[in-house]
């Protein structure tokens, strides 16, 4: 329950902070940090335009996408406090529920019969396919390290002790942040600010969405950021008491948003054809974590 509230609060500001960081980095003052939320509220009040080609799929897809993100959010724990849903193997549920949302967002892009949206959909499907093993190997290694299989128990038992385990946490943070970038279609995989439909991934998929539906998709995007941020936070807090853990939560979320903003300000997007390789490389980082876990557990003996 606590995690849900915290994630929702973080989601309110996350994207705003990214945008603010980017504008400060480029020497502008930029909009206030709750501007994205204001935009979404405005979208919720707007009417919609639907393409003549689209069918019912296009209309229900944003709802299902949003619901899947909310469902995934319920699984995330916060330190000692469980998520609303918690069971052995809940991280599998987490990944597959998000997959449902992805499935619908992809077919809704194909529903428009556009020449660009299919391109974005194809890329999104491919990239998230490649990101999947990185996440699963990471979670599998953590399960191996702690001997538990649910998010809550894994994170609660994750003791940062030896030097190797610091390395694990650093690498795991890297993997989770990158998975978050892929899932949210941000730099260096995708540039949300690009102007050309041919070079977009996520943005081109939602070209035809408008009004309430677009609002749902954007809100889901904010929450997705906060969800992955919360996962990263969970790597560190373990059994830390709430009075320290909660400020830590916001500090780490803030830090993550700022660093995403900085990455986006000073980096260019990878070449589309290199993205797949980059994402596969992420799996090898996960394998590094796996080997480190084997080292810690002394399985090499």
């Amino acid at each position: 329950m606590l995690s849900l509230l915290l994630i929702l609060v973080a989601a309110l500001f996350f994207t705003g902070i990214i945008i603010r960081t980017k504008s400060l980095a480029s020497g502008r003052k930029g909009p206030g940090i709750i501007q994205p939320i204001k935009d979404v509220i405005r979208l919720f009040k707007k009417g919609s335009v639907y393409s003549q080609t689209t069918s019912i799929i296009f209309q229900i897809a944003p709802t299902i996408y949003f619901a899947s993100v909310v469902m995934a959010m319920l699984v995330i724990p916060f330190g000692q406090s469980k998520g609303i849903i918690s069971f052995n193997g809940d991280f599998i549920f987490f990944a597959y529920v998000l997959a449902l949302g992805k499935f619908f967002s992809i077919i809704s892009a194909l529903d428009t019969g556009s020449s660009f949206e299919g391109m974005g959909a194809s890329r999104e499907a491919l990239y998230s396919m490649f990101a999947e093993p990185a996440f699963f190997i990471l979670m599998g290694s953590l399960a191996l390290l702690t001997g538990y299989t649910s998010f809550h128990e894994i994170f609660a038992a994750l003791h940062v002790g030896s030097y190797i385990s610091y390395a694990i946490t650093v690498l795991a943070t890297f993997v989770l942040v990158m998975v978050a970038m892929i899932e949210n279609s941000r730099m260096p995989i995708d540039d949300p600010k690009t102007h050309l439909e041919l070079t977009m991934v996520h943005e081109v998929m939602i070209l035809d969405n408008s009004g309430f539906d677009l609002g749902l998709i954007l809100t889901a995007g904010f929450m997705k950021f906060a969800i992955y941020g919360a996962l990263v936070v969970n790597l560190f807090i373990g059994m830390v008491r709430y009075e320290y853990a909660i400020p830590m939560f916001f500090a780490i979320q803030f830090l993550m948003a700022v660093s995403i903003g900085l990455i986006e300000s000073f980096m260019a997007r990878f070449r589309m054809s290199h993205n797949a390789q980059f994402i596969v490389a992420l799996t090898s980082v996960s394998l590094l974590i796996f080997f480190a876990v084997l080292l810690i557990l002394g399985k090499f003996a």
Binding site: K45, K46, G47, V49, Y50, S51, Q52, S114, L207
Partner: peptide
């Protein structure tokens, strides 16, 4: 809310 129908963005 008003709902309109138009061609796909091309």
């Amino acid at each position: 809310l008003p709902v309109a129908s138009n061609a796909t963005w091309g």
